[in-house]
């Protein structure tokens, strides 16, 4: 029992911070700049552009690889003459129709899927069959059914959006905790009101991820489809712009078209979706 000797107790008062040196030290200017993700990314893009410019000058063949400055000039001329904005606008209009139709259909399918068992089976079978099917593969069929024009484009767009969004939304709904569902039912919610007021916000991270994937699929599909038959009643989109410019061997314009596609993609991803994310899932602490 008395093998350990009785030790004295120790009681101390913590000293004030002014008694010792550094507790917090501000980071250096370089460290702080390097912590900015956008600055690092801008730097990377600048490096890539310099490499491009140098390589193109070294190659000296504008038919294969125009220089960055040529591309930017062609892009600026396209913007100034109003051709590029016009083409981009045409593409975006078709995209909006196809994307929203796809999202609405996906919503109907997933609501059926979580309210009825046969709806679940239907959604699972359909997504298993059609999700791996590239939208472009449906284009010949679309042309026969809807002819040259917006109808065919919308058809392939709906196909590319629908399954990705439905799959993610359904997974999101199923992932909503039993507790939250019970809370909703406690307030007297059921059926569609439970879906709208509890399940959709609770599954919003998955739904948003689905919308992002759907948007990317749709944008790719649209440009590719336009390259095949872009012109409808005399108004073509960005894909058609690229196709036309290639035929005229105006390669800087082809590059300007691609640049516009990339820029719109970046804009939607980094402005539209980022803003939605910051205002919703991040604010709610559902995603970091």
């Amino acid at each position: 029992m008395s093998e350990t000797a009785l030790r004295p107790e120790i009681v101390q008062t913590p000293r004030g911070a002014q008694d010792f040196g550094i507790v917090e030290k501000p980071l250096t200017v370089f460290e702080r700049l390097y912590n900015q993700a956008w600055l690092r990314k801008t730097f990377l893009i600048a490096v890539l552009l310099v490499v491009w410019e140098l390589y193109a000058r070294h190659l000296d063949n504008p038919l294969l690889v125009p220089t960055f400055t040529d591309t930017i000039t062609a892009w600026w001329e396209g913007i100034a003459s109003g051709v590029l904005p016009d083409r981009a606008w045409t593409s975006l209009q078709v995209l909006a129709i196809g994307f929203s139709t796809g999202v609405v259909l996906a919503f109907i399918l997933t609501v059926l899927a979580i309210t009825t068992r046969i709806g679940t089976d239907f959604l699972e079978t359909m997504t298993a069959m059609f999700n791996p099917l590239p939208a472009i593969a449906l284009l010949p069929l679309a042309l026969i059914w809807f002819g040259l024009g917006v109808g065919s484009l919308v058809f392939v767009l709906v196909h590319s959006v629908l399954w990705a969004v439905a799959l993610n939304t359904h997974a999101g709904f199923r992932g909503v905790s039993q507790t939250l569902r019970m809370v909703g039912r406690n307030y007297g919610l059921s059926g569609l009101s439970l879906v709208l007021k509890i399940l959709i916000p609770a599954a919003f991270p998955s739904i948003l991820a689905g919308l992002k994937i759907g948007w990317a699929f749709a944008w790719r599909t649209l440009i590719a489809a336009e390259l095949v038959f872009g012109v409808a009643s005399g108004k073509g989109g960005l894909g058609w712009y690229i196709f036309e410019s290639k035929n005229e061997l105006d390669i800087p314009e082809v590059f300007a078209g691609l640049l516009t596609i990339i820029m719109i993609g970046l804009l939607v991803e980094n402005v539209v979706f980022r803003t939605i994310e910051i205002r919703t899932v991040r604010r709610w602490g559902m995603q970091n």
Binding site: S177, M182, N186, G188
Partner: peptide, 18 residues
């Protein structure tokens, strides 16, 4: 279920995070 019998659950995720 109905609002005349309010439940308080054990889980912390019973509040609507949004």
């Amino acid at each position: 279920p109905g609002p005349d019998r309010m439940m308080v659950f054990q889980e912390f995720d019973q509040l609507l995070p949004w």
